[in-house]
């Protein structure tokens, strides 16, 4: 602790951000509530139903988990463009292990997550050891992994139909047995658990403190004798492992690993992170914000669909909301 306090305190920008963070969270949460209220008033019979809410939660899980992974990387002022494709690659490797290799699920799950962590570590090493900027390093990983997924599967989906219980990872509901009135799908519970874990790592561990410190002033951290590169590799490894969880969720939901899926999901994840108040210039960000950001995205898309807004206009409105969200965030920050 003694060495980190000197690191995280000097930059005045970080101090402002810290003080404004509660406010930011409230603002984001208020926007989410406002969206829900607006859609509920406009389409009460269709939007405000248990089925639809479960649908929204379900559609948030995959991009939500990817957004959690991206949050760590973005706070270090880095970026990870490979998260969507890495998710798919993990699903494919999970399929290879459990379907083609016939391994049991208790082994297949850690393998899937492990593949993600390993790929994350490789990205981290490319960034730190080869000094390739994160944007390019992860862009390269994105293309490379997409190609590998297609090669390994021969461009055909791997179906998990024979892996007993695999579909339950995302679609089953343990909650229903515990609390019958709350039939939350397991995928949603897993998303919440991953979010809690991320919250603890980001706020209560050394890794979390260095994540913020590197993002606010990497040079200062380096000069104070910290092995920045090593921590960065750990951060990308963590992000990769979280992508592995997303890979399990999507494979379970679709009951298959779809090798060509995933590209473009990194942008949805980045949008959720940014709406949640994490700054692309690094040093600022929260897990709660990202979770809310992910929900804002999925509530918006679902609500516009429920209102039968034409697809082209859904895109226009989503784009406007993203810009609006970041603009209000800036507004608050300059006032603070």
């Amino acid at each position: 602790m003694s060495s980190t306090t000197t690191i995280s305190s000097p930059s005045p920008r970080t101090r402002i951000a810290w003080s404004g963070q509660t406010k930011q969270k409230l603002l984001a949460f208020a926007s989410l509530l406002a969206l829900i209220v607006v859609f509920s008033v406009l389409k009460p019979d269709a939007f405000m139903t248990t089925d639809n809410f479960i649908g929204i939660l379900q559609s948030t899980t995959v991009v939500g988990v990817l957004a959690l992974a991206s949050t760590f990387v973005i706070i270090t002022a880095g970026i990870d463009l490979s998260v969507g494709v890495l998710m798919t690659f993990c699903a494919v490797m999970g399929g290879m292990a459990m379907v083609n290799g016939g391994l049991p699920m208790w082994l297949g799950i850690p393998i899937t997550i492990g593949v993600g962590a390993l790929c994350g570590a490789i990205s981290g090493l490319i960034i730190t050891k080869l000094r390739v900027p994160p944007f390019i390093a992860t862009l390269g990983m994105m293309m490379l992994l997409k190609g590998l997924s297609l090669i390994i599967t021969q461009a055909k989906p791997i179906y998990f139909s024979d892996v007993e219980g695999f579909e339950n990872i995302a679609l089953g509901s343990w909650m229903e047995n515990l609390i019958p009135v709350l039939p939350l799908p397991n995928g949603v519970v897993i998303f919440i658990l991953v979010a809690v874990l991320c919250y603890i790592i980001l706020n209560k561990t050394v890794l979390g403190r260095y994540t913020f410190a590197i993002g606010s002033n990497e040079e200062a951290v380096r000069l104070s004798g910290v092995n920045v590169n090593r921590w960065k590799v750990w951060i990308y490894t963590l992000a990769g492992g979280i992508c592995g969880v997303a890979g399990l969720l999507i494979a379970s939901r679709l009951n298959s690993a779809q090798p060509a899926l995933g590209q473009g999901y990194e942008l949805d994840a980045i949008a959720a992170v940014v709406i949640g108040g994490t700054s692309l210039s690094g040093g600022v960000g929260t897990i709660v914000g990202t979770v809310i950001g992910a929900f804002i995205m999925s509530v918006l898309v679902n609500g516009l669909r429920i209102m039968s807004v034409a697809q082209e206009w859904q895109m226009v409105l989503t784009g406007l909301i993203i810009i609006l969200a970041v603009y209000t965030d800036n507004l608050r920050r300059t006032k603070a």
Binding site: D45, A46, F47, T49, D51, N52, G55, Q58, S59, V62, I250, R253, L254, S256, Q258, A260, L261, G262, Q263, G264, V301, N302, R305, I306, S308, Q311
Partner: peptide, 23 residues
């Protein structure tokens, strides 16, 4: 409605799910 690429199976399911909610 349709997803942006023919690989986005999960997005198509979200669309189907929202469509069902509209009864």
């Amino acid at each position: 409605e349709g997803p942006e690429t023919e690989q986005q199976v999960d997005k198509q399911l979200d669309m189907l799910s929202a469509a069902l909610a509209k009864k």
